[in-house]
Deep mutational scan, measured.
Amino acid sequence: HNLTITQGKLFFHYNPKLCLSEIHKMEEVSGTKGRQERNDIALKTNGDQASCENELLKFSYIRTSFDKILLRWEPYWPPDFRDLLGFMLFYKEAPYQNVTEFDGQDACGSNSWTVVDIDPPLRSNDPKSQNHPGWLMRGLKPWTQYAIFVKTLVTFSDERRTYGAKSDIIYVQTDATNPSVPLDPISVSNSSSQIILKWKPPSDPNGNITHYLVFWERQAEDSELFELDYCLKGLKLPSRTWSPPFESEDSQKHNQSEYEDSAGECCSCPKTDSQILKELEESSFRKTFEDYLHNVVFVPRKTSSGTGAEDPRPSRKRRSLGDVGNVTVAVPTVAAFPNTSSTSVPTSPEEHRPFEKVVNKESLVISGLRHFTGYRIELQACNQDTPEERCSVAAYVSARTMPEAKADDIVGPVTHEIFENNVVHLMWQEPKEPNGLIVLYEVSYRRYGDEELHLCVSRKHFALERGCRLRGLSPGNYSVRIRATSLAGNGSWTEPTYFYVTDYLDVPSNIA
């Protein structure tokens, strides 16, 4: 807008934040220059609390790290170098490059900038070799853009010569660093050979998330399962459950009422301010606690030095998902009996873990797994792929695949051998790939016309006998059925096997 004052003059007093240069501009645009008398524009009460600059400061050096910015700028000295009290560095987070010096300023003089007072450097006698002032900004957020400017702080001049310097606002972004852990990993099994893994992005990506790394490792069953005799009275049979499938998407929606109208769909109840505040506090606490764990609990591995020492970490090797089922080394339970199943799973520490690289999504279907087997899954978020990966501390989750139908069934015939004193040795093959492992066998036998009897055969007993022995049988026709019990439950009964026990007292003698 054009402003013209045809008559009258300007009068400025007691404006401590208004620089004289701005008042002189007002004289020019209003056409009143030359009308004012000496005392109409006070030299001592206008701009006496402001830094009124008329020179431009330029930054000469900028260096960044993930949490620091090192700045240096060209030296500046007023005509009387004693008038320079120091520099004021202003900075704040700036997602967009549209910041002005006066953003967030209120009537009390406060604003949204963080201000650092910096002492002037030592003055050199040689004007050509003056030290460049600077400042190291610490405690910054990774991968965050900051708006920065600097200006001088000078003393009051009796001659009211307006001098000083100020830089333009520059924008500097800190470097990326390792992201925080992925949030809320959930693993479920939808079949006997697959596990579905879902997660949420890290709360602090500290860069642009480029991919996720998912490692999985087959877990050995508890050692007590191999040692305890679950045929003993009072000892509860062990059981394991597989990871249940995901709930429906509708039930997972946030901010939804727990109660549904019987007449149909209901609208979600909005969260109160107290609920939102509580969630923010919980989120802040979780982030602080995660940072504490990362800094205190997890110790970084030592990389190899120039002395030739090897990095103890196993090298990563990509495998196809079809090879995942046989990740671990199978060892027989008892070496003397080769027909026992290889369900003991000690994992070799030198073995390469299978892994998958996930790009542009937060889910993965891990296939080719062994049925009813526990897996430990390790999830890392990465925001750099080359020249070397920059990934987060791992988040861990466990899951067990679903049982395989008929995996616990005894394959092959049940054979028998009759000894003296009416002892019958029953023999059968253990299931080759049971659900988890076989903890015991149930032997059901009966003599024709009598009630059915049951015998429990422990895992250890089966390994020693290759089956079991029935003792003290009365003469007669017998039928026997056997079924295995694994961590997933009972298998199917075998087809009945028949044998006849004679009275050993009636056996004919070869003595003449």
Rank of each mutant, 00 (worst) to 15 (best):
D291M: 01
E465N: 12
P387N: 13
R471K: 04
P205L: 14
Q384S: 11
G472V: 12
F372P: 00
S315W: 14
P387S: 07
D291Q: 02
V457Y: 15
N477H: 08
R447S: 09
E389L: 08
S257G: 04
P338G: 10
D204M: 06
A405T: 10
L455G: 06
F246P: 11
T347K: 09
P205H: 02
L464H: 11
T272M: 04
S479E: 15
E221N: 06
P238A: 03
E281T: 12
E351P: 13
V393I: 13
K236P: 03
S392K: 00
L280R: 10
F289Q: 03
L470P: 01
N255V: 08
G489F: 06
S458F: 07
T272Y: 02
R376A: 04
T497G: 06
V501I: 04
V297N: 02
C267T: 02
A407T: 12
G234K: 08
D409K: 11
F246R: 11
S283R: 13
G472P: 07
F289D: 05
V359K: 07
R301C: 10
S251R: 06
V359N: 08
T494S: 04
L277N: 12
I366Y: 03
L473M: 05
K357T: 09
V439G: 08
T386V: 12
S257R: 06
L228T: 05
L455Q: 08
A488C: 02
V296G: 14
E281I: 15
Y259L: 04
S274I: 02
L321I: 14
G234F: 11
G308R: 14
R459C: 14
K317F: 11
D250W: 14
R481Y: 10
M402G: 01
W493Y: 12
P300L: 05
S367K: 10
R218N: 06
Y504Q: 12
R400G: 08
T415Y: 09
G322F: 02
A484V: 05
L379D: 01
T415R: 12
I209A: 13
R469L: 06
V393R: 00
T241G: 14
E356H: 12
A395W: 04
L225C: 05
S262I: 15
Q384L: 04
D222K: 14
E362Q: 08
V296K: 11
T343L: 11
E221M: 10
N295Y: 07
S257A: 06
A263H: 05
S458I: 03
P244V: 06
E282G: 05
Y498T: 08
H211C: 04
S486M: 00
F289R: 01
E452P: 05
D222Q: 15
K317A: 12
G264M: 12
C231R: 01
L321V: 14
F226Q: 08
N339L: 11
